[in-house]
Each structure stands twice: as C-alpha cells, then as structure tokens.
Computed example of a mutant assay.
Amino acid sequence: MSQVIDRPDLSAAAVYASVPDRVRRRDELFALLADAVAHYPWAHWQARMRSGGVPRGQLRSVGEAIRSPEARA
C-alpha cells in the first residue's frame, strides 16, 4: 500500500503489522483502498501496481470481456 497509494503510514502502523491484524481490520483497509482508488482511473493504478510488483487485473462485465482486445485476439 505504501508504494501504490502513497500511504507509508499504513505499512508502518503496528495495528497492521501481521496478517491476522490485517484480517481483523479488513473492512478498514478496504475502505482506505476504495477511497484512494476513487480519485484516479484504472490506468493510473495499473501502472503504479506494475511498478510496485503487485498482481493486477481489470474487472469487466461479461459484455466488456467479450468485446475486449484479449477476447478478440
């Protein structure tokens, strides 16, 4: 999160130090992510995730998937 959404405070926070801590606070983390990603389009986040080594993919409706360049290929 610190690399992708520019929130180094979150990766340094003791309340998120372990996987069980993050699972317990999952709703909080999802809210933080939702707020951050709402400000920029997918292309912005895709590039940031790529540079941070984060696996990524765009969620598409069935119609979008069928019309996608990948499906046409």
Rank of each mutant, 00 (worst) to 15 (best):
Met1Lys: 12
Met1Val: 00
Met1Ala: 10
Ser2Arg: 11
Ser2Tyr: 01
Ser2Ala: 12
Gln3Asp: 13
Val4Ser: 09
Val4Gln: 05
Val4Tyr: 02
Ile5Gln: 02
Ile5Cys: 02
Ile5Arg: 07
Ile5Trp: 03
Asp6Lys: 08
Arg7Glu: 10
Arg7Lys: 13
Pro8Asn: 04
Asp9Ser: 04
Asp9Trp: 01
Leu10Asp: 04
Ser11Phe: 00
Ser11Lys: 06
Ala12Trp: 00
Ala13Lys: 12
Ala13Tyr: 02
Ala14Arg: 14
Ala14Lys: 13
Val15Gln: 15
Val15His: 11
Tyr16Asn: 10
Ala17Met: 00
Ala17Gln: 14
Ala17Tyr: 05
Ala17Lys: 15
Ala17Ile: 00
Ser18Leu: 05
Ser18Thr: 15
Val19Asp: 15
Pro20Trp: 06
Asp21Ala: 10
Asp21Lys: 05
Asp21Leu: 01
Asp21Val: 01
Arg22Gly: 05
Arg22Trp: 00
Arg22Asp: 07
Arg24Thr: 08
Arg25Ala: 10
Arg26Asp: 06
Arg26Cys: 06
Glu28Cys: 07
Glu28Gly: 05
Glu28Ala: 06
Glu28Val: 08
Leu29Gly: 01
Leu29Gln: 05
Phe30Asn: 13
Ala31Ser: 13
Leu32Cys: 03
Leu32Ala: 09
Leu33Pro: 02
Leu33Gln: 06
Leu33Trp: 09
Leu33Gly: 07
Ala34Glu: 12
Ala36Leu: 00
Ala36His: 01
Ala36Ile: 02
Val37Arg: 10
Ala38Leu: 03
His39Gly: 09
His39Asn: 11
His39Thr: 05
His39Trp: 01
Tyr40Thr: 04
Pro41Ser: 11
Trp42Asp: 14
Ala43Glu: 15
His44Asn: 12
His44Tyr: 13
Trp45Pro: 02
Gln46Ser: 11
Arg48Asn: 07
Met49Ala: 14
Met49His: 09
Met49Pro: 05
Arg50Val: 07
Ser51Cys: 04
Gly52Leu: 01
Gly52Arg: 05
Gly53Phe: 06
Val54Lys: 09
Val54Asp: 07
Pro55Tyr: 06
Arg56Ala: 13
Arg56Cys: 14
Arg56Thr: 12
Gly57Arg: 11
Gly57Ile: 04
Gln58Asp: 11
Gln58Cys: 09
Leu59Phe: 08
Leu59Thr: 09
Arg60Val: 03
Arg60Phe: 00
Arg60Trp: 04
Ser61Ile: 03
Ser61Ala: 11
Val62Cys: 13
Val62Phe: 14
Val62Gly: 14
Val62Met: 15
Val62Thr: 13
Glu64Tyr: 01
Glu64Thr: 02
Glu64Ser: 07
Ala65Ile: 01
Ala65His: 11
Ala65Phe: 04
Ile66Phe: 08
Ile66Lys: 11
Ile66Gly: 08
Arg67Trp: 06
Arg67Glu: 15
Ser68Val: 07
Ser68Ala: 10
Pro69Gln: 12
Pro69Lys: 10
Glu70Asp: 15
Arg72Ala: 14
Arg72Cys: 05
Arg72Gly: 08
Ala73Pro: 07
Ala73His: 12
Ala73Ser: 15
